[in-house]
Computed example of a mutant assay.
Amino acid sequence: MTLALLHTSPVHVPTYDGLRDAHHPGLALRHLVHEDLLARARAEGPDAVADDIRALLSAAVADGADAVVCTCSTISGVAEAQSAAVGVPVLRGDRPMAARAVAAGERVVVIATVSSTLGPSTALVEEEAARAGRAVEVRAVLVPGAWERFEAGDREGYLDLVAAAVDAVTDAEAIVLAQPSLADAANRARTTLPVLSSPRTGLEAGASECAAPGTA
């Protein structure tokens, strides 16, 4: 079985390879890295890259992908909507994380470092709350200055700023780290609140789709 992963940064490749090796040995991963998709989505809106995403997904399916996980929260909703068109499951890597946040309680804080992620991530938590029949209050937090550190290659400074933002949250039952690049900040934070990230649960969902009966 082959799972394709659509990324908008190469930094995610070793993260998902490590998770595969630890939890899903034998699963073949194909990484599709397209940084330009995020840049355009931030400038023009996620729908502006829908045709490009559909073409990339179709090419991945033609190349043998049994399912696809989009790891970028900004464009994952657009990617998920292409599932019927490309003929295989296309999953939002952040959806399982959102479902867990809703299950954790009625107040959820979504933390992001790019503004284009806040809308889709907040809407996803609200969507999962509606699906679960729960009333959930969602608050969005943008970490100022963090993305500039990420773009400059200052990973330590980036994660430290995110961890500080996490520790500043006191009025929530769950904290959502909206982007995969934020995941390691959970280990730096000192909060006792649940801090949720998407890489492990998103990969689990993709692996399950690949193993589902009827998958080629």
Score class of each variant (00 low, 15 high):
Ser116Trp: 01
Thr117Tyr: 08
Thr117Lys: 03
Leu118His: 10
Gly119Pro: 12
Gly119Ala: 15
Gly119Trp: 13
Pro120Asp: 03
Ser121Arg: 01
Thr122His: 09
Thr122Ile: 14
Ala123Thr: 03
Ala123Phe: 05
Leu124Val: 12
Glu126Val: 15
Glu127Leu: 15
Glu128Arg: 12
Ala129Pro: 07
Ala130Pro: 08
Ala130Met: 08
Ala130Phe: 06
Ala130His: 12
Ala130Ser: 09
Arg131His: 14
Ala132Cys: 06
Gly133Phe: 08
Arg134Cys: 05
Arg134Gln: 09
Ala135Ile: 13
Ala135Val: 14
Glu137Phe: 00
Val138Gly: 00
Val138Ile: 03
Val138Thr: 06
Arg139Asp: 10
Arg139Ile: 09
Ala140Asn: 13
Ala140His: 13
Val141Leu: 13
Leu142Trp: 05
Val143Ser: 02
Gly145Ile: 03
Ala146Pro: 00
Trp147Lys: 07
Trp147Phe: 12
Trp147Val: 04
Glu148Val: 04
Arg149Ser: 06
Arg149Met: 13
Arg149Leu: 15
Phe150Met: 10
Phe150Thr: 01
Ala152Trp: 09
Ala152Pro: 07
Gly153Ala: 13
Arg155Phe: 10
Glu156Gly: 13
Gly157Leu: 06
Gly157His: 11
Gly157Pro: 05
Tyr158Asp: 02
Tyr158Ile: 11
Leu159Cys: 08
Asp160Thr: 15
Asp160Leu: 13
Leu161Asp: 14
Leu161Tyr: 02
Leu161Trp: 04
Leu161Ser: 10
Leu161His: 08
Val162Gly: 07
Ala163Asp: 07
Ala164His: 08
Ala164Cys: 01
Ala164Val: 07
Ala164Arg: 11
Ala164Gly: 13
Ala165Leu: 12
Ala165Pro: 09
Val166Cys: 08
Val166Glu: 04
Ala168Trp: 07
Val169Thr: 08
Val169Ser: 03
Asp171Gly: 01
Asp171Val: 10
Asp171Pro: 05
Ala172Val: 01
Ala172Ile: 02
Ala172Pro: 01
Ala172Arg: 08
Glu173Lys: 08
Glu173Leu: 09
Glu173Arg: 09
Glu173Met: 07
Ala174Asp: 11
Ile175His: 00
Ile175Asp: 05
Val176Lys: 01
Val176Ser: 09
Ala178Lys: 03
Ala178Cys: 05
Gln179Gly: 10
Pro180Arg: 00
Pro180Ile: 13
Pro180Glu: 14
Pro180Asn: 13
Pro180Asp: 15
Pro180Val: 12
Asp184Thr: 11
Asp184Tyr: 02
Ala185Arg: 00
Ala185Phe: 01
Asn187Ser: 15
Ala189Asp: 11
Ala189Tyr: 00
Arg190Gln: 14
Arg190Ser: 15
Arg190Cys: 07
Thr192Cys: 03
Leu193Tyr: 04
Leu193Ser: 05
Leu193Thr: 10
